[in-house]
Simulated assay, not measured.
Amino acid sequence: APAIIPPRGEPPPPPDAAIASAREAARTAPTLQALRELLESFDGCALKQTASRLVFADGNPEARIMLVGEAPGRDEDIEGLPFVGRSGKLLDRMIGAIGLDRSKVYIANVIPWRPPGNRTPTPQETQICLPFIRRQIELVDPDVLVTLGNPSTQALLGTTEGIMRTRGKWRDYDTGKRTIRAIATFHPAYLLRSPSYKRLSWQDLRSIATVLAV
């Protein structure tokens, strides 16, 4: 079935229809640019109406490592890039500690539009956006996938456990075409609130560096 893209101003389709439409649309995107254009015209997620702009990705689409957070915040909504506020600066320092920068990584979020007031995305909003981030991962085709924080870890790695139990353990992420090595670690925003966990996050980063060195 063709993607359901209502004209601007009309209410979004009901959740099940929006999820089906997202799956159908995401599958048809042959490139990252096509996927971005699809998201620009996709009206199945109400978050788009309240956000300033689409926050699609930053970094190098040819990178061997892809990092995925939950959703954009205020700074990201203004600039149209993921991880540009305080947590973005910390993320830059984290990847810098293992010899990487934004030219060597690819960064995205499960949700590409800022939720109003930075509220937590609803399970329904996550389900609608999930086919797009899954397709984005498939098109980037990294060797290592890093989920940052609980929401992106639970959404992408299919676990219900908290980040304390999931972090630092390697698991398989299946794109349908190949299996990518995946690992969860703390979201930089969480580390800003709880700096004592930076030590554990450093262990995760070293583990990532070891795998990338192979």
Rank of each mutant, 00 (worst) to 15 (best):
P11A: 12
A17Y: 00
A34C: 11
K48A: 09
D77Q: 00
R36C: 06
T31P: 02
P61E: 13
I65R: 08
R74H: 10
N60W: 01
P11Y: 09
R64P: 00
L38M: 14
A57K: 07
S21W: 05
R23C: 12
I19D: 10
L38D: 13
M66V: 15
G44S: 09
D75L: 13
L32G: 08
I19A: 14
Q49A: 14
R53P: 03
P12G: 04
S41K: 13
P13F: 02
P61W: 04
P72V: 04
P14E: 14
E24R: 11
Q33E: 15
R53H: 05
E40I: 10
A51C: 05
P30E: 14
V68F: 06
T28I: 01
A20K: 14
E24P: 00
I65H: 04
P14C: 08
T28M: 10
D75A: 14
E24S: 15
A29V: 04
E37A: 12
D16R: 13
R36A: 04
V55P: 07
D43M: 09
G73Q: 01
G69Y: 03
E62C: 07
P72I: 10
L54G: 09
T50D: 03
E70R: 12
L39M: 15
D16P: 03
R64N: 13
G69E: 03
P61D: 12
D58C: 04
V68H: 05
P14H: 07
A46P: 14
F42S: 07
A51Y: 10
A71L: 11
D77K: 02
G73Y: 06
M66G: 10
A22R: 05
P61N: 12
P30N: 10
V55R: 00
R74P: 00
A57E: 09
F56Q: 01
G59Q: 01
D75H: 09
P15I: 02
S52D: 05
A26R: 02
A34Q: 15
D58Y: 04
L35C: 14
E40T: 09
A51N: 01
R27S: 15
P12M: 03
V68N: 05
V55C: 12
V68Q: 06
A22S: 15
A51F: 09
A17W: 00
D16E: 15
A63G: 06
L35A: 14
R36E: 15
R74E: 08
T28F: 04
S21K: 03
V68D: 06
D77N: 10
A46K: 13
A63S: 12
A17T: 03
P11V: 06
L35T: 11
E62S: 14
L54R: 08
G69Q: 02
D58P: 00
S41F: 05
L38Q: 14
E76Y: 07
N60A: 08
F42T: 04
L54A: 06
L38A: 13
A17F: 00
D77Y: 08
A18W: 03
A22L: 07
E62F: 04
I19G: 07
N60F: 01
D75P: 01
A25V: 01
A29K: 01
C45I: 09
P11R: 11
N60Q: 04
P11C: 09
A57Q: 05
